[in-house]
Design a protein around this nucleic acid. Structure first.
Length: 639
RNA sequence: GCUGGCGUAGCUCAAUCGGCAGAGCAGCGGUUUUGUAAACCGCAGGUUGGAGGUUCGAUUCCUCUCGCCAGCUCCA
């Protein structure tokens, strides 16, 4: 940093003065500072020696301040346009900010336009942003006078005796801060949309009107972000699912239940074949279990009590009540229990693509991402306590290799520790948590600890993957379970001849096949990699004089195991290409008179790339080399 | 589940103030034998999500209901 160094100032000097003194006039993009690592206002007075650094939008802290100030500008604009709207809260969020208002009706698109126009004025007017401090009583009086009951409620819950407020022009809001130096420092500002939200997220409390917006340091960054939002829309798996004829969800079937069409089903079985082969290679045994079971089984497992809200109602049959399964674990446990186990047998690894049904509230259903019937790529590992670490290590390596195969290379790992309400002895928890942590360390994977976020029955590791648009999705999870071995009285005979309790590890790599498929559709924008493409190549004869030859080409490739189609329609090749492009077929093999005479094909790759004319065998090799050569997955921890 | 918005042909969308429901694409029939992202002509396609109500008359207004969308909440 230019001007880095140490200098002595009089107490009470502002951060701005310190920076100016040491590095010269502040560049306009600096709108706040970090003081010993904590974000602060440019105008913050310094009372003791500290390290002062400029903050810009480039840092996470800076981005939050910028968006938080943007939310204040939004609130000021709303109050100007609709003085009767009451303010509540307005925090920054991942890609922007929102502000919740209590208002007599929902905001219309026209309202939002007016609000945005007013916000632009406020930015242009460039009000200085000023921090004020006052006693709680004074602040309560101020907001009560201004008719802001929600602000009063917030202040009354603050424990400090003094609260801070920020003023910009005539507008004042309660806020911890920090904020930008003046409203003009927010450059590119956009109101996005509005939706209802409850005060404090509680549906028994008043419905508020939330306005979402976003802001960036330059118009270009904002445009880029808007383009990204449009790209997300373009890739929406619900839209592509219909356009590519992959799946449907129909009213006649019911919400949250998926119909897999032939093309989608083909991708699914390719995913599943790979999954099964990879699991067998990694020492798993595959099992199958029924979709319903006696309700008593779910009482034993505990689901009937703690998971009841997510279960479909039991089905009454002559011999009692049966329950549609929301989980696979009890079945795998019963397979384990079907005979006596020796310590030599462990670990036992059971895997299943198990379809489960869960009652999800109607408002939360979303395409393939949140459904009522889905297939978990589930497995349960029964092992000795001393095997937990190595088993978890194996799972981590396996997970990475499988996800890489599907095209994901960026991972974020999370270790969740003991929550407040938990079963199992604390020292058991400590040992298991240490085993998980050791496995992460051993694997060389960077991870974050989420304290208290574990499941009640044991600690867990979660993995989030980043997709092509930079969004992250949680798919994989590895969970240690102390509870079920206890509930089902699982045991194995140790080398001492006595019975011992095994530890159970639940794990899913893809999470749900449906959801993971949806993520793949969006990640690839429907253009699946060749190994997953429902149709890998289409043969396009130019006239029906090449029909016989085109059929030979098709047969040749099909015999080599490729998924190939033949387009014999009486249409111009331009149309056939257009439709193959729209279907995102990776290879188009055009055959006209020239190709027929030369026993060749003209290869066009999807997105227009011309790969030239070549013999059929060469085209076959070209396509085959565009796929991973075998389904095996070697551990590949380091991307 | 809650709040708001929206349901018109297979898809994308029109239809003034309550006055005969329409287009493009897809489909079907024909013509065309075609060289790297849309040939031409014609035909057919609808209980306007469903039920009820107001009205001489409802896609349009009202009630209920089902579904979808954006959020909230939830997410072992």
């Amino acid at each position: 940093m230019p001007g880095a160094g140490t200098k002595t100032f009089r107490a009470g000097v502002t951060a701005r003065d310190v920076l100016t003194e040491m590095t010269g006039p502040l560049p306009p993009e600096v709108f706040a500072v970090s003081i010993d690592g904590a974000p602060g206002d440019l105008g913050a007075p310094l009372t003791r020696s500290a390290t002062v650094e400029p903050l810009t939008f480039a840092s996470e802290d800076g981005k939050e301040i910028y968006r938080h100030s943007s939310a204040h500008i939004l609130a000021q604009a709303v109050k100007d346009v609709f003085p009767s709207a009451q303010m509540t809260i307005g925090p920054p969020i991942d890609d922007g900010f929102y502000y919740d208002f209590s208002f007599e009706r929902p905001f219309t698109p026209g309202d939002l336009e007016q609000i945005e126009a007013r916000a632009h004025d406020i930015i242009r007017e460039n009000y200085p942003v000023q921090r004020l401090e006052m006693s709680k009583e004074e602040a309560v009086r101020l907001f009560r006078d201004q008719g802001e009951p929600f602000k009063v409620e917030i202040i009354e819950q603050i424990e400090d005796t003094v609260v801070s407020l920020y003023r910009q022009g005539p507008f004042v809001d309660l806020c911890r801060g920090p904020h930008v130096n003046s409203t003009g420092q927010v450059r590119a500002f956009k109101v996005l949309h509005s939706a209802g939200a409850y005060w404090r997220g509680d549906e028994r409390r008043p419905m508020l009107q939330r306005i979402y917006g976003t802001s960036f340091p330059t118009r270009r960054d904002l445009d880029e972000h808007v383009r990204r939002l449009e790209e997300m829309k373009r890739r929406d798996h619900r839209k592509l699912g219909r356009e590519l004829d992959l799946f449907s969800i129909q009213d006649d079937t019911g919400p949250g239940l998926i119909l897999w069409h032939p093309k989608g089903a083909r991708v699914r079985w390719l995913m599943e074949n790979f999954w099964r082969e990879a699991h067998v290679k990694h020492g798993y045994e595959l099992v199958y279990s029924p979709h319903i079971a006696r309700h008593e089984l779910w009482q034993t497992s505990g689901h009937a009590d703690y998971y009841a809200d997510n279960m479909f109602a039991p089905i009454t049959v002559e011999s009692g009540e049966y329950q549609l399964k929301p989980m696979n674990c009890p079945f795998h446990i019963l397979v384990y229990k079907s005979r006596l186990r020796s310590y030599r047998d462990l670990p036992v690894r059971y895997g299943e693509l198990g379809t489960v049904y869960r009652y999800e509230r109607s408002g939360v259903l979303h395409g393939l991402m949140r459904v009522r019937g889905f297939t978990q790529d589930d497995a349960h590992i029964f092992c000795r306590p001393d095997q937990v670490e190595s088993e978890v290590g194996r799972v981590l390596a396996f997970t990475v290799s499988v996800l890489r195969r599907f095209g994901f290379t960026e991972f974020a790992w999370y270790l969740s520790t003991r929550p407040d309400t938990a079963v199992g002895a604390p020292d058991e928890w400590d040992r298991a948590t240490q085993a998980l942590e050791a496995a992460l360390k051993e694997s060389g994977l960077p991870y974050r600890v989420d304290p208290g976020e574990g499941v009640f029955y044991g600690p867990k590791i979660d993995l989030k993957i980043r997709d092509a648009l930079g969004r992250s999705w949680q798919c994989s999870t590895v969970q240690v379970d102390f509870n079920n071995p206890e509930r089902f009285a699982l045991s194995y005979i140790g080398d001492d001849g006595a019975a011992h309790r095994p530890i159970m590890i639940h794990r899913a790599l893809l999470g749900s096949i449906e959801r993971f498929f949806g993520i793949l559709v969006e990640h690839y924008a429907g253009a699946f990699p060749v190994w997953l493409a429902p149709v890998q190549a289409v043969v396009l004869p130019i006239t029906d004089k090449q029909a016989d030859y085109a059929a030979q080409v098709r047969d040749h490739l099909a015999e080599a195991g490729l998924r190939v189609e033949l387009d014999l329609r009486n249409e111009k090749v331009g149309l056939k290409i257009r439709e193959a492009e729209q279907a995102k077929v990776p290879y188009m093999l055009v055959v006209g008179e020239r190709e027929r005479e030369a026993r060749a094909v003209s290869v066009r790759k999807r997105n227009g790339a011309d790969a030239g004319t070549m013999p059929v065998a060469e085209a076959r090799d070209l396509i085959q080399h565009d796929m991973p050569s075998e389904p095996s997955t070697r551990p590949a921890l380091h991307p």
